[in-house]
């Protein structure tokens, strides 16, 4: 078979909704795109533990504390599922971690924003995880098998994240004036960065959309963003709070909410490393990795020692 035939039979599989598995032939660009996307997704889960970990020791009750710990533990698991999926495309775990720690690899910019009050834990669960879920539900049907399987597992666990976030805000919204103000303030700060999570506008794209053709993605950034806005604009009514967008308004013709312009300058600035916490996050990741080095080395030494003992016994 010529390269052209391989490509044709590959696209055929995609068109017929047959998943691509690690050992199947795939175009190099498909491998690279998936590898970049899955590893970034994994990094996002790992770095995503930092803003929330910040509040574990300061959670207002034991109940909220165990919930937060469970959530952060889930994120670690999600990172692992995704790293394992990315490894099937031929990059070692060490290389990926190294790329994250050196700043070469990217992660979702949302985690470069600080979590300033307890209400942020609710807003992150409701808005940030809510936005992530829309993306992840779509990715359950992505064309690369290992990625799709990881996503199915993640989606099952993620819905608790969003629900606990909303419930936490609901409690605040029924509390004292200070608590309600804190709730509104968190929503104000997380709303726009959450919308940026879906990436640049579709119109910013000059190239034909290969990711859609390969069914890595099945919905565009704008489609996902619109469904998120429609969803949240309704849900916020239950909180009795407002979204910080004077242009947010139901459009009867479009059957969607209209919304104001996103600050794209801010978006690019954070992507380029100049967000409020970019440096802090990388420092924290590197510190954790470096301080864990002796544990990893000790585990290997211990495994070796036990192996040798067994050999001696057998001899």
């Amino acid at each position: 078979m010529s390269l052209h035939d391989f490509e044709k039979s590959f696209q055929n599989k995609i068109d017929n909704e047959i998943k691509i598995e690690p050992k199947d032939w795939m175009p190099e660009a498909y491998r690279k795109t998936n590898l970049r996307q899955i590893s970034q997704h994994a990094h996002s889960e790992i770095v995503g533990m930092l803003p929330e970990g910040n509040w574990i020791s300061r959670a207002p009750s034991l109940k909220r504390k165990v919930i937060l710990i469970a959530k952060v533990q889930d994120e670690a698991g999600h990172g692992l599922y995704l790293y394992a999926a990315a490894e099937t495309l031929g990059m070692s775990r060490e290389q990926m971690i190294d790329d994250l720690n050196s700043g070469k690899a990217k992660y979702s910019s949302i985690f470069n924003y600080p979590t300033l009050s307890w209400a942020d834990m609710g807003a992150v669960g409701w808005l940030v995880d809510g936005a992530a879920i829309l993306n992840q539900v779509m990715l359950c049907r992505t064309s690369y098998g290992p990625y799709a399987r990881a996503m199915v597992r993640i989606c099952k666990e993620e819905s608790f994240h969003q629900r606990q976030g909303f419930e936490s805000l609901l409690v605040l919204s029924k509390g004292t004036k200070e608590q309600r103000d804190m709730c509104q303030d968190a929503i104000n700060r997380w709303w726009w960065p959450s919308l940026m999570m879906f990436g640049p506008k579709d119109s910013e794209s000059t190239n034909s959309d290969q990711s859609m053709k390969w069914k890595i993605k099945r919905k565009t950034n704008d489609e996902l963003r619109q469904s998120f806005i429609d969803m949240i604009a309704e849900q916020i009514k239950l909180l009795g709070m407002t979204l910080p967008d004077p242009n947010l308004k139901w459009n009867e013709n479009r059957k969607h909410y209209d919304f104001g312009e996103i600050n794209w300058e801010e978006f690019w600035s954070v992507v380029k490393g100049n967000g409020p916490c970019n440096k802090q996050r990388l420092v924290a990741r590197n510190k954790a990795h470096d301080e864990g080095a002796w544990v990893r080395a000790a585990a290997i030494a211990y495994a070796e020692k036990r192996k040798n003992k067994l050999k001696i016994k057998a001899a």
């Binding site: 996307q37 970034q40 070469k104 990217k106 990436g199 579709d202 990711s211 993605k217």
Partner: peptide, 16 residues
Amino acid sequence: IKKFYYGDIPDGASEN
């Protein structure tokens, strides 16, 4: 592929 999605930011976009 110049269009990026959530979780698909181009490498090398960082200044630091």
